[in-house]
Amino acid sequence: MPNRYECWPAARSRQALYLPIGRDELLRRLPTATNEDVNALTVSPEALDDFFARFDAPADDEDVIIYPAIWASS
């Protein structure tokens, strides 16, 4: 067993997941997410627009699992 200052090597590698959900769907979900969790960060429509303006979807050559858009509408 390692002492307090040692770390065990990770058993798994990290994997990025991309869930392609459109702006309109996220706007629809915002009130529900904010009301269900008292610790949720409040996101305004303007903040969401700012995020979408700066966000770049993963490129084809990046090691990312992309979930199909069908999942995003459920």
Rank of each mutant, 00 (worst) to 15 (best):
N3Y: 04
W71Q: 05
Y5F: 12
N39M: 12
A10E: 12
R23A: 09
G22V: 12
D50E: 09
T42W: 07
A53E: 13
R14D: 03
Y67A: 11
A53V: 11
V43Y: 01
R29V: 06
V38K: 07
L30Y: 01
V43S: 01
P45E: 10
D56N: 15
D63T: 11
A10K: 12
I66Y: 00
E62G: 04
I66N: 00
E46A: 15
D24W: 01
A40D: 09
E62V: 11
G22P: 02
S13W: 00
N3T: 14
I65F: 13
D50M: 04
D60L: 15
L17M: 06
R23D: 07
M1N: 11
P2T: 08
E62P: 03
L26R: 09
Y18I: 06
M1Y: 05
W71R: 05
P58T: 11
R28H: 13
A33N: 08
A69G: 01
E6P: 00
I66T: 15
A57D: 13
D56F: 03
E25I: 14
S44G: 07
P20H: 05
L41N: 08
D50H: 05
A16P: 00
Y18L: 08
F55D: 04
E36L: 10
A47S: 14
P2H: 09
P2K: 09
P68M: 08
V64M: 10
N35W: 02
D37A: 02
E46F: 01
A53Y: 01
D60P: 11
S44K: 04
R54E: 12
P58K: 05
R4H: 14
I21N: 01
A69V: 13
R54I: 05
L48Q: 02
R29Y: 04
D49G: 07
T32M: 05
P9F: 00
A40M: 10
D63E: 14
A11R: 11
N35E: 10
L48Y: 02
I21K: 02
A10N: 12
L17K: 02
